[in-house]
C-alpha cells in the first residue's frame, strides 16, 4: 500500500499544481447547478407561470412517486430536480476525460514513465493510482456540487421538496451509482490512455464514454424510462462488475514493452 499511497500522492500533488486541469469538471459542476435552478425556479418565476399549471408536467411527474403533501408545483419541481440529479453523474465522467485520458499517455510523453516502470511497482499499483488520482478530486468537486444542490433546494424549492428528495433512491444514486459510474469511466479512460500515443486521441476516445450515460439521461427526461430504486441498485451492481472486468482487462492490456518502444 505504501507504493500505491505514494503514487496517489504524486497524482494529487501534480493536480494541485495544475488546477487548470480541473476546470472542465468545475464548469460541468456549475452547469449541473445552474441548469436545474434556472429551469425549475428562475424561468417560472420570470414568466409568472408556475410549473404546477402545466397539466402535462404534473402528469409526467407522477412517475416520481406519490407525494400528497406537496403542491402540484412542488411535485413537478421534485420530478425535475430528481432528473437533473443524474447530471451529477457527468461530473466524474468529465473528470475521466480531462484527467485519466491524459494520465498514462501524458507520462509517456513527458518521459516520466520509463524510470517509474524500472522500479518494483506492479502494473495494478500504477493503474489504480491513476484511477484514484483522477477519481478523488473529481468526486470531491461532485460532492461539493451536491451539497450546494441540496442547499439550493432548501432555499429555493417549494417547502417539502428537499425532504422528499432525501430518499433511498437519491442515496443510491449519489453514494453508489455515481462513484461506480465514475470508476468505470475512469478505468475505461485509463485503458484508452495506455493504448494510444497521443493525449488528443485519448480524449477523443474518452468522449465515447459519455454516450451511454447521455442516452440514459435523455430517456429519463423524455419519460421513456424511470429508473426506480431497485433498477438503480441493479445498474450500480452491474457497473461494479464492469469496473472489475475493466480493471483486470486494463492490467492485462498494459504492455510495458509496447508502451516504451512505441515512444516517438
Amino acid at each position: 500500500m505504501t507504493r500505491l499511497r505514494a503514487l496517489v500522492a504524486k497524482e494529487l500533488l501534480d493536480l494541485r499544481r495544475n488546477r487548470g486541469a480541473l476546470l472542465p469538471v468545475a464548469i460541468v459542476t456549475l452547469m449541473s447547478l445552474a441548469l436545474p435552478f434556472t429551469v425549475t425556479i428562475a424561468i417560472p418565476a420570470m414568466t409568472g407561470s408556475p410549473l404546477g399549471d402545466d397539466s402535462d408536467l404534473v402528469r409526467v411527474s407522477a412517475v416520481a412517486g406519490v407525494h400528497d403533501r406537496l403542491t402540484p408545483t412542488g411535485r413537478v419541481q421534485l420530478f425535475l430536480f430528481q432528473q437533473f440529479l443524474m447530471m451529477f453523474l457527468l461530473i466524474p465522467i468529465t473528470g475521466a476525460m480531462a484527467l485519466a485520458a491524459h494520465s498514462v499517455v501524458g507520462e509517456k510523453q513527458a518521459r516520466t514513465l520509463e524510470p517509474l516502470l524500472a522500479t518494483p511497482i506492479a502494473t495494478w499499483e500504477l493503474l489504480i493510482s491513476k484511477v484514484l488520482g483522477a477519481l478523488l478530486p473529481t468526486l470531491a468537486i461532485a460532492v461539493a456540487g451536491l451539497v450546494l444542490y441540496f442547499a439550493g433546494l432548501v432555499v429555493f424549492a417549494e417547502p417539502g421538496v428537499a425532504a422528499a428528495m432525501a430518499t433511498g433512491r437519491t442515496a443510491i444514486l449519489i453514494a453508489f451509482v455515481g462513484p461506480v459510474a465514475a470508476l468505470v469511466s475512469l478505468q475505461a479512460a485509463i485503458v484508452i490512455s495506455s493504448r494510444v500515443n497521443d493525449p488528443r486521441t485519448a480524449q477523443q476516445f474518452g468522449v465515447l464514454i459519455i454516450i451511454p450515460l447521455s442516452a440514459l439521461l435523455v430517456a429519463q427526461f423524455t419519460g421513456a424510462i424511470w429508473l426506480s430504486t431497485p433498477a438503480l441498485a441493479f445498474i450500480g451492481l452491474g457497473l461494479v462488475g464492469v469496473w472489475i472486468l475493466l480493471t483486470v482487462f486494463s492490467v492485462a492490456l498494459f504492455d510495458r514493452e509496447t508502451i516504451l518502444t512505441r515512444w516517438k
Binding site: K10, L13, D14, R17, N18, A110, R111, T112, L113, E114, P115, L116, A118
Partner: peptide
C-alpha cells in the same frame, strides 16, 4: 538503479 536517457522528472513536483 536505472538512469534513463532523459531525466524523466515530474516537472510540476
Amino acid at each position: 538503479g536505472f538512469l534513463t536517457e532523459t531525466p524523466g522528472l515530474w516537472d510540476r513536483l
